[in-house]
Nucleic acid binder design. Structure first.
Lengths: 340, 340
DNA sequence: TATAGTTACGCAATCGGTTGCGTAATATGT
DNA sequence: ACATATTACGCAACCGATTGCGTAACTATA
């Protein structure tokens, strides 16, 4: 069992042609039941293993899906990847995962590598930095299905999967307003990324609807790295009119800020009401428990996986770039409620 | 640019042989500098892309590393994967990641698939269930480097990368003892997995050293799913001699249990001192802050990646199955200290 | 200038499946 | 019994790069 066995070996041993072996193993209709049985069982007993290199070359496909994400190790993204992997695995697709680490250049390199590796499809969540998209053109030229999730941008005929960030931002903000907040700060991620931009727009929508004024002070843009919480604190303290509510674009920063605020003696939610985004596990642990928007990472991954696989299997009209908006959910916990 | 360009196209256009093109593109020494320059620059301008299917077939290698983990989406594992990916990416290796979801059967299937896909190496963190290892034999037969990390088992000539769980378990337990605990409960994961078994052994070592008695009541074995915290609580309440300290084999369960205990009016650390394991981000958020053992996932991933790539590049004697033990670190926070 | 040594490249086999087309053998219809 | 359809399989080209071996052209040595 040291030497690799090929279909030629099987063919010789069974006195059939390699073509017949190949067809038998692939359950091709033009091979008789008996011959198939003979071949398949002999293949098993002899320990034959297909050589995917050869199969890929001749079929020009790899049964492999490429994924590019900013970072593997965030609760949201690892949930999403887990969902994608589960679906891919069930359909016998392999997943090649790579990280852009928020760098446009690495994203481009990864895209090239995945293209060269012959992935059958590509799923992307964009890096913070990315503003130019020509590295994806080749996929379109070669008609390789391309799908964006979570961090997306407009791309003709490309399905996107994410939640309605604008509505979610609106819901979060309106919730704070309903709890009595009048001067709300929005701590946003980079606004050029759709997710954050839309949350911000939802924020403004809610202010507008409830006739609250919006000044530049009501917005603080950051990369959402919790280590930089001090800058957020500075902004909060420097504000002329004190904020009575903060809507954070993610929970990690919200939690860091809650801890900093508590240390300063600020009472939450009495002095400032706070809501986050993502329903990160820590939101249930922090005291006070953090209100947030549930962004279902795992389900998103599953849907994204299913969507791309439908495309690959041709079940779906490839033209129809359906974009899926997942339902988000406002989760009210103690950090934002007024009667306490 | 619609049709794919091959080395044959380049060869024809430049009046050289395909062999020369191939060698030029691979910077083979027997091609003159000028010819190389001609070929490389023309290849670039014409938009030539290598066909890895063909290259893989002829070289019988894929520049791809397979990874099997129990679950993608735990803080520890996604950190480790992030580290692995970073290293792999830097060395131009692709990463195919698959999840066993703690099932031995899926682990076997994934191993088969990855073998068939022609990965150049395999990195594994074992599923809870796995007791039989024959699905890895084929890798050894074919001399495909195999490495285990975190959840490992003894495998001749296979490098393993993990922390010294026994010492870590000992350190955690001794810390509780030093804080005055006399009757400590150890909430363990499945003991047939080395990581948990060794933590448990370290636990017993510490009790023995400090002449504390160990009875079956001092051990509670679980799958560490925080949803099952009630069973742990039951065990705690049913114990005849009240526990004054608990050493959890992971932070997630520790946090769940702290919340349950607090709800019951138990004071931590006054009544019960608690230490976890992993240094999960939540350990810094929970009140009281959870003492724990830092298990550096990212660094582990980086080391594991470097190790397997050294093997692949032949820098290291493949025989020498070096096993790496990472340093762990006892992190003392408020959940375990006595003067409070 | 004859000989040996380099340099630079081409020939052709090889990696192992896949698949369009052709055909012998058998089945079906009248 | 004869024409036609169907079944079951083989032939051989093909996918696109890699590489051992051979050799023409050129350089260095005596």
């Amino acid at each position: 069992m040291d030497k690799k066995i090929t279909i030629y070996d099987l063919a010789e041993a069974l006195n059939v042609s390699p073509a017949t072996v190949s067809r038998a193993l692939n359950n091709h209709p033009s091979i008789s039941f008996n011959t198939k049985k003979r071949i398949v069982s002999y293949a098993q007993s002899s320990g034959y293993r297909i050589n995917k290199f050869a199969a890929n070359l001749s079929k020009q496909k790899s049964n492999t899906i490429g994924v590019i994400v900013p970072k593997l190790n965030s609760p949201f993204m690892s949930d999403a990847l887990s969902g994608i992997e589960k679906v891919a695995n069930e359909h016998n697709y392999n997943l090649i995962i790579s990280q852009s680490l928020e760098s446009e250049q690495k994203e481009k390199l990864n895209a090239k590598t995945l293209y060269d590796s012959g992935v059958d499809a590509l799923m992307v969540s964009l890096a913070y930095e990315t503003t130019n998209y020509e590295h994806f053109e080749i996929f379109r030229e070669q008609k390789i299905p391309l799908l964006f999730f979570d961090r997306v941008d407009y791309f003709p005929n490309c399905p996107t999967i994410l939640i309605d960030n604008r509505q979610a931002g609106f819901d979060a903000t309106e919730h704070l307003i309903q709890q009595g907040c009048k001067n709300i700060l929005h701590v946003s991620g980079y606004l050029k990324r759709n997710a954050y931009n839309n949350r911000f727009n939802g924020f403004k929508d809610a202010l507008y609807k409830h006739k609250l004024k919006f000044t530049p002070y009501n917005l603080y843009e950051t990369d959402l790295d919790p280590k930089k919480v001090e800058f957020v604190m500075e902004h909060i303290k420097n504000s002329k009119e004190k904020f009575d509510g903060i809507f954070f674009a993610n929970d990690a920063m919200a939690v860091a800020c809650i801890q900093a605020l508590l240390k300063e003696g600020v009472q939450i939610p009495k002095d400032i009401k706070i809501i986050g985004f993502n329903n990160n596990p820590v939101s249930e642990i922090i005291q006070p428990n953090l209100s947030t928007i549930n962004y279902p990472g795992y389900e998103l991954g599953v849907l994204a996986g299913q969507s791309i696989i439908s495309h690959l299997k041709g079940n779906i009209n490839i033209q129809s770039a359906e974009s899926i908006l997942l339902k988000h959910e406002l989760i009210v916990r103690t950090s934002s409620i007024s009667n306490k």
